[in-house]
Simulated scan of single mutants.
Amino acid sequence: MQETAHSPATPPQISAEHRELLDQMLDKWSLHVLDRLCEQPSRFNELRRAIPAVTQKSLTATLRRLERNGMVERVVVSTRPLAVEYRISSLGKTLQDLIDALLRWTTVNMPEVERARERFDEQT
């Protein structure tokens, strides 16, 4: 079997471009927003209620960054008054399995991480 340039045996190199995108996708709030929008489209205030710790400024910045990167779509809903709804884009939907896997991994491994933290803190 011939290996391709991106086979598991030869993973792609992390370039500055990749690092920047990963930093933006894995920042403090993006996974929360993406996880929520994978479930259902939401208005800004619905997202704020779903993620109570996020500030208005941080949520605005996160949504703009996700929209710029093509992960989220901002849709004007023709209601009275006009409303804006955020939806996961088709590109963003490709992340759903990865997001679910990350969340499952953290759920399963959090006890071990906590034990490692305790051991580290005891040694320092």
Rank of each mutant, 00 (worst) to 15 (best):
V54E: 13
A50L: 04
R43F: 15
S30R: 06
P11S: 15
H32N: 11
P12D: 12
P11C: 13
E46G: 08
A9F: 12
A50Y: 04
R48M: 15
P41M: 09
L21D: 14
L26P: 07
L34C: 08
S15R: 00
R64A: 01
P52K: 05
H32D: 11
A16K: 05
L21G: 12
L47I: 05
A61E: 02
A9V: 08
E17F: 00
A61D: 02
K28R: 01
H18I: 08
P12Y: 13
D27E: 05
E46N: 09
P52R: 11
Q24A: 13
A61V: 03
K57W: 02
L22V: 15
R19N: 02
L26F: 09
V33I: 10
P41W: 00
N45A: 15
A16T: 12
P11M: 10
T55L: 13
L31Q: 06
Q56T: 15
L34Y: 06
T62D: 00
S42V: 07
E17H: 02
R43D: 09
R48L: 15
R43L: 13
S42N: 08
R64F: 08
Q13S: 08
H32F: 14
D23T: 03
T55P: 08
E17T: 03
R65P: 00
A61I: 05
D23K: 04
R36H: 00
S30Q: 07
R49P: 03
M25F: 14
T60M: 13
H18T: 14
L37M: 12
L63M: 13
P11G: 14
L31E: 11
L59N: 10
L47Y: 04
Q24C: 11
T55G: 14
A50P: 04
Q13V: 14
C38Y: 08
P11K: 15
P41H: 06
V54Y: 12
P52G: 11
P8G: 15
I14T: 01
T55A: 15
F44Y: 15
S42R: 11
I14M: 11
R64D: 09
E39V: 06
D27Q: 05
L21C: 03
A53H: 04
T55S: 15
C38P: 03
S15W: 09
L59H: 10
